[in-house]
């Protein structure tokens, strides 16, 4: 039984109670993914599974056999920051940095959802072909990622800039 984490095949734990989050943090020492509530309320533990964002605290590791997980550690390549990571630094999209890995993974997954045309609660035209990433669309879609430091403005600038450069 194995799971692919940031490109490396990894054994799944024998204890079926282990969440994907605890597998990463406690069993593999991949502590970039954060725990802020362990109950699906804060978004700090967001990772990408086959490109889709999930809350790793609500996922049992064994459910993800054979799947590919990307964590914040997997966003950068060869020590080079992902452009969204750089945009977070440029726009001061964090203070303490604890929600940041979740915000980053969530944003990457969110932008894919927008490209696929998935509507959100604030999308007016459900029949429409494509989604325009307005400020409201972006904020609505990122609202599962809490930032108690209140770096929201910077996060929005960073994601907007990144989304524009990768259009």
């Amino acid at each position: 039984m194995s799971i692919n984490i940031n490109g490396s095949p990894t054994n799944l734990p024998s204890d079926t109670r282990v969440s994907l989050l605890d597998l990463l943090r406690d069993h593999l020492n991949l502590s970039g993914t954060k725990k802020g509530c362990n109950q699906g309320a804060c978004g700090a533990c967001t990772v990408l599974v086959d490109g889709e964002r999930i809350l790793s605290c609500l996922a049992l590791a064994v459910q993800y056999e054979g799947r590919s997980v990307t964590t914040v550690e997997g966003l950068s390549t060869n020590g080079l920051l992902h452009p969204l990571q750089q945009a977070f630094i440029d726009h001061d999209g964090f203070q303490c940095g604890y929600c940041t890995p979740g915000q980053l993974c969530s944003a990457v997954g969110m932008l894919r959802e927008v490209r696929r045309g998935l509507p959100s609660n604030v999308t007016n035209d459900l029949e429409g072909e494509s989604i325009t990433l307005t400020r409201d669309e972006l904020c609505e879609r990122m609202s599962g990622n809490l930032c108690r430091c209140g770096a929201y403005n910077g996060i929005v600038y960073a994601i907007t800039e990144f989304a524009e450069t990768t259009k």
């Binding site: 502590s31 970039g32 550690e73 630094i89 001061d92 940095g97 890995p101």
Partner: peptide
């Protein structure tokens, strides 16, 4: 000036209290 600890925080290498093995 951008935060000096920014690269560590965005790359997940900043180690918080519960992350010291």
């Amino acid at each position: 000036v951008s935060r000096l600890d920014g690269p560590q925080k965005v790359s997940g290498t900043a180690r918080f209290a519960a992350e010291f093995p």
